[in-house]
Design a protein around this nucleic acid. Structure first.
Lengths: 216, 216
DNA sequence: TGTAAATTAAGTCAACCGTATAAATTATTT
DNA sequence: AAATAATTTATACGGTTGACTTAATTTACA
């Protein structure tokens, strides 16, 4: 007999619980007992559905990285490819890059634990991290590096990479340290206005540093 | 009888071992046994010198935060206070801020594990994190926020804070993700030239975004 | 209503935890 | 060189928690 639909529901529930806990405490501090408890399930069920703790965590990571697999930077930049020699287009491409990055990272639809789990993986030095690194981080960063070198051929590898870091790191930091930042700025969450200001400032300073015209 | 000098040596050895392990795995994954093994010491010795695991970790954090206690942003900005109404001085103040931040963070004299331990503390949600946050992070960020608002009074709180993030987050990210970044950029370590480029680019884009003249 | 899927409760066994203690060793002073 | 206090070591304790298993039970659906 095929799987019952309730099976998938339970699996999703378990992935969510494991993801939340991993986001809060890091994978190595998460026990299947804790996952079961948070999901309102039994530890036996976890092994029934996922065979092992490791496989459950793999499922969590697969869920988190789905967005990045579906929409890599290369795809975001595709519509601009053709006229990327024109400065206005370059400026608009940068705008789109930053806008997409921000809205993906802080999309209210996306479970809050996704970005934190990503950082937990990146900072763990194990097999899963290597995998994530080679499959997602490297291609995306390589793509941005090439993008900047195409805009300004005078840039060397290091400079192009630094541009990439300047675009991504403020967004990463905001996600990674959301707890502290929200406390410091006395916010409940990053509101639309704040995110728009972030976007404008990142875009503008990148454009200026590259000697491009502002796009608005 | 007073302490023997070898006692302090051993304490330093233990702090270093604990710091390295905490940097690699996070505090909650570090056991007394592992610390003792890495330091080539006995677990009993740890309790002899530090009374408890918690006290050992406190000593680690004290070692890591020493630089930040000694030289807060407010002290870095002190020499510029008097003429901070002049744009050239503002530009130079920004240069000094970034330069100090970078040289402190990547000072080859500083043990490699310091910045990672700081990261581990910030992301742990416990008593020690609250302490670090209130005593170091908040005053420093508050200081930078005020600095930017003084340069450009039109800035609101959010914008001033974002400027702060744009200056600090690339440096933090480079320290925090050094392992991955060095692998990606195929470097052994951040060389002087790379750090200087980072400084120049951060300074320049901050100055331009604020409408200040370049300082060189 | 039959049956495979899903859930539950209980248990296994092992690894590891922080801490304590007492004996052995070492550094320093007299 | 002997005395003594600081330091280091080996060993052990009592406990917690870990991933995973099993067998019985309940549930979903054809």
């Amino acid at each position: 007999m095929a799987n019952y639909s309730i099976g998938q529901q339970t699996r999703d529930l378990l992935i969510e619980a494991a993801g939340e806990l991993a986001a809060e405490q890091g994978f190595s501090n998460v026990s299947i007992r804790a996952v079961a408890e948070r999901a309102g399930q039994n530890t036996g069920g976890i092994h029934y559905h996922f065979k092992s703790k490791e496989k459950l965590f793999e499922a969590v990571i697969r869920a988190v990285t789905e967005v990045h697999r579906k929409l890599p930077y290369s795809k975001i930049l595709e519509p601009f490819e053709e006229h990327l020699d024109r400065p206005e287009v370059q400026s608009r491409a940068i705008r789109t890059l930053v806008k997409t990055e921000i809205s993906q990272t802080f999309d209210p639809e996306m479970p809050w634990w996704h970005s934190r789990v990503l950082y937990q993986v990146v900072h763990a030095r194990d097999r899963l991290m290597e995998l994530l690194f080679d499959e997602i981080v490297v291609p995306n960063f390589e793509c941005l590096k090439e993008f900047f070198k195409r805009i300004k051929p005078a840039l060397d590898d290091d400079q192009a990479f630094l541009h990439t870091m300047f675009i991504t790191s403020p967004v990463f930091s905001h996600a990674e340290n959301a707890h502290s930042i929200l406390r410091f700025t006395e916010k409940e969450q990053y509101d639309q206005k704040y995110l728009e200001q972030m976007e404008d400032m990142i875009v503008l300073q990148t454009q200026m540093l590259l000697g491009l015209p502002p796009d608005k």
